[in-house]
């Protein structure tokens, strides 16, 4: 390959990495918000993402909806699921040791995976996701940019900015930050902590649902176990950027996306997880609170 072709190849990989990273970002936001507010690694989040993708699948293939109504429907379905999980499984454990909630989260995750694989629910097989719009792609100096990339990037950036504004500018957003700082003090200030936690799960799950549809459009396949790896990687991305920090989740996700795609493009696709998790461990050892996290002394 001459130099020019190499540059084009590299840019193409970077573009693919941005596409993957944007989807991770939507999942990572839910993880980071939930962790920020209840200090729980919500392992079921990846499965909410999966249910969102299936909701999009049925919206497009059975109801025949177009892209925008389908993604909104998927967001609503995921939101209802996320809030239900919080209400039934996590709220009874609010005062229990943290590990009990974590194990419950893993239980919910396994339950969703295997319950949806039953034949009368989604069934265990892969299904091809019908694209709700025509795929076109533009050639800019040899680098192919598809409308899928533009849509994914557009939707992700819109949702991240909207979320950041919501958390910093609205009353509910301020309440959220107060609760993440100190549950009891927030309660004393007249904030209904349970409602705020429910809203957090609702928003995080809706974002995961949107991520599920976008992921299924980009890599057009859905199955009940599709949420496990993207879920884990998105969580890792959230930790990488600094958990609880919204721009951190975006940054971490873009790094994870690049690490994965560049390893696939230049080394070997089987080694991509090695690089992604290797970066995680190195970052944790050097900056345990993540790239954008504030390093502080842990209170006793």
């Amino acid at each position: 390959m001459d130099l020019n072709a190499q540059i084009v190849y590299f840019l193409q990989q970077v573009i693919n990495g941005i596409q993957l990273g944007s989807v991770y970002a939507l999942i990572a936001l839910g993880y980071t918000m939930v962790y920020g507010i209840v200090r729980l690694i919500n392992f079921a989040h990846g499965d909410v993402f999966m249910v969102g993708a299936f909701a999009g699948f049925f919206a497009v293939s059975v109801l025949g909806l177009s892209f925008l109504p389908a993604i909104i429907l998927a967001m609503i379905v995921s939101m209802v699921l996320g809030v239900t999980i919080e209400r039934l499984a996590y709220r009874p454990l609010r005062r229990a040791p943290k590990i009990a909630a974590l194990i419950t989260a893993i239980g919910v995750s396994i339950f969703l995976e295997y319950f949806t694989s039953l034949n009368f629910v989604f069934g265990p097989n892969y299904r091809t996701f019908p694209r709700p719009f025509e795929v076109t792609s533009w050639n800019i100096g040899g680098v192919a940019i598809s409308n899928i990339l533009v849509i994914i990037l557009g939707v992700s950036l819109f949702l991240v900015v909207a979320l950041q504004l919501f958390v910093t500018r609205t009353k509910v957003g301020i309440a959220m930050r107060a609760v993440s700082f100190d549950h009891d003090a927030a309660r004393l200030m007249g904030i209904n902590v349970d409602t705020v936690i429910s809203i957090t799960f609702a928003i995080g799950s809706a974002l995961a649902g949107a991520g599920g549809v976008l992921f299924a459009i980009a890599y057009p396949q859905v199955d009940p176990f599709m949420g496990i790896m993207p879920g884990l990687k998105a969580f890792v991305a959230a930790v990488l950027g600094g958990i609880g920090i919204i721009p951190g989740a975006l940054l971490g996700s873009l790094i994870m996306g690049q690490a994965e795609v560049l390893t696939t493009g230049y080394v070997s696709s089987t080694l991509r997880d090695l690089v992604a998790f290797g970066i995680l461990i190195i970052v944790l050892l050097v900056r345990p609170t993540g790239l954008l996290g504030k390093s502080g002394v842990e209170k006793v």
Partner: peptide, 21 residues
């Protein structure tokens, strides 16, 4: 038989909610 992996997480969740320790 497919219900095996559905029942087992439910047992896990119920034990955790009833006996968090």
């Amino acid at each position: 038989l497919d219900w095996r992996m559905v029942i087992y997480p439910l047992v896990m969740i119920i034990v955790m909610i009833l006996r968090p320790r």
